[in-house]
């Protein structure tokens, strides 16, 4: 059941993004869609609307980029609650640090090990 919910919710978020790319003008690039998703995730999270989705769909809500926005926003908000203004600055990136570090480190080593096929 958990898996089905993850599939449906995660798939649905991707479908929405696909519609955004296909039905809008060419000026809406994939970069715009991704920025839109991460921002939307952060805003929904700040409004307290994303956490219920995570409770419902698990990875279906955390794996898409909206989940990344959620992670950042929750980090900043919890940081604010715990440490005040300093936490506002520290919390967001701290909570997403693992994903960002993974992308930097693996990206760096991939660039050393692989040659792009073109």
């Amino acid at each position: 059941m958990l898996f089905l919910k993850a599939f449906l919710v995660g798939g649905f978020i991707c479908l929405l993004a696909q519609l955004l790319m296909d039905l809008t003008s060419h000026k809406v690039t994939p970069a715009h869609v991704l920025v839109g998703l991460v921002t939307t995730g952060a805003v929904l999270s700040a409004l307290g609307l994303y956490e219920p989705l995570v409770k419902f769909a698990g990875a279906g809500a955390t794996v898409p980029l909206t989940g990344f926005g959620h992670l950042l926003a929750q980090g900043a908000i919890k940081g604010a609650a715990r440490e005040g203004l300093l936490g506002v600055f520290r919390g967001g990136v701290a909570s997403a640090a693992a994903g960002i570090t993974a992308a930097v480190v693996f990206g760096y080593f991939a660039a050393l090990l692989f040659r792009p096929k073109g």
Binding site: M21, H26, P30, P116, K117, G118
Partner: peptide
């Protein structure tokens, strides 16, 4: 050259983007 042009004008060649 496909790859020099892609990288200069559009996306990195290994980037997963869809073409219209």
């Amino acid at each position: 050259h496909y790859s020099t042009a892609e990288r200069q004008f559009r996306f990195p060649t290994e980037h997963g983007s869809q073409r219209p």
